[in-house]
């Protein structure tokens, strides 16, 4: 028994030493990323007055540079494709809590009509965007808080902070859907092959059944954060290649209350029913993004 316990302790000690060598893997991970926006937030490098947030609809529909040119206010896009509102809440919280970032005057949350608060296969909390940044303690803390990682083990073992993506040693490459502008926006300049180009004329009505309490709470928390920090909170509904869901804006306005504004694009504009302006049924392509951004910037200028 004594021999067994001594050997076991010796092995544990050796493994502990080996584990520490993986600090090199952990700390070199951010350098292989091409989208550095999340790291800029963690490093306190965001200096924008107008910040766009959301999922792929936010990333592709609003071109921050165009907003900046139109409003003369520094703008930046922090929308991450595939992310849900719980991730947006994390991004906003980190943006406001990290020293060095300039407190924005306006947050624009581009929402998904009508999955924003509901279960969605395509939208999630993007842990995969956080793994390359696990060298930052706040990222590790968030993972533990969200039960992605175990608390004590994360502190003890570097290996537990990593996942398989940290071992992909070749630099990430952008696909043609992911090219990113210096302002953080990610417009697309082509159409999806499977886009059927049929405008959806069915008038859907928003139902609150299926809303996730975590998502509703995250949305409310974003509203509250903006209110606490005296930030103008704008919820923007971007075009789908179909009619806007009836009642969706009202539901969001109910959650926002007097602490923000819910803005819907002008559905009557012919571009929004023209397939040439769309990437697929749910996303604009760059020509459409330019039209939509211009309309949004005009709203923003006239707002005050």
């Amino acid at each position: 028994m004594k021999k067994f316990l001594i050997r076991l302790l010796a092995f544990v000690f050796c493994f502990f030493i080996i584990d520490k060598a993986f600090i090199l893997v952990r700390d070199s991970s951010p350098q292989r990323e091409v989208d550095r926006r999340l790291e800029f937030i963690l490093q306190g490098k965001i200096r924008a007055d107008i910040v766009v947030m959301g999922s792929s609809r936010g990333a592709r529909s609003l071109i921050a540079q165009q907003i900046e040119d139109s409003t003369n206010q520094p703008s930046y896009n922090l929308a991450f494709p595939g992310s849900d509102v719980t991730f947006h809440e994390y991004v906003l919280r980190t943006l406001l809590e990290t020293k060095g970032n300039k407190k924005p005057s306006t947050i624009v949350l581009v929402v998904d009509d009508s999955d924003e608060l509901k279960t969605s296969k395509s939208l999630k909390f993007r842990f995969d965007r956080m793994y390359p940044l696990v060298k930052y303690k706040s990222v590790r803390d968030e993972m533990v808080k969200r039960k992605e990682k175990k608390p004590v083990v994360t502190e003890l073992l570097v290996l537990h902070q990593l996942n398989k993506s940290n071992f992909k040693f070749t630099p990430r490459k952008f696909t043609k859907n992911d090219s990113i502008m210096p302002c953080g926006s990610m417009p697309i300049s082509h159409q999806k092959k499977t886009f059927d180009k049929k405008y959806g004329t069915t008038q859907y009505v928003y139902k609150r059944e299926g809303e996730l309490i975590q998502k509703v709470n995250a949305f409310k928390e974003m509203v509250a954060m903006c209110e606490r920090n005296d930030i103008d909170f704008i919820v923007a509904i971007p075009p789908n290649f179909r009619k806007v869901t009836a009642g969706f804006a009202n539901r969001l306005q109910l959650l926002v209350g007097k602490s923000g504004t819910v803005w819907i694009y002008d559905e009557a504009k012919p571009e929004y029913s023209n397939p040439d302006y769309f990437f697929d049924n749910a996303h604009l392509q760059k020509t459409g993004s330019v039209v939509y951004t211009a309309e949004f910037a005009s709203f923003l200028k006239n707002k005050d």
Binding site: L157, L159, H160
Partner: peptide
Amino acid sequence: AAIVVLSGV
């Protein structure tokens, strides 16, 4: 190491 890295939730 493989177990520790890949053990999430």
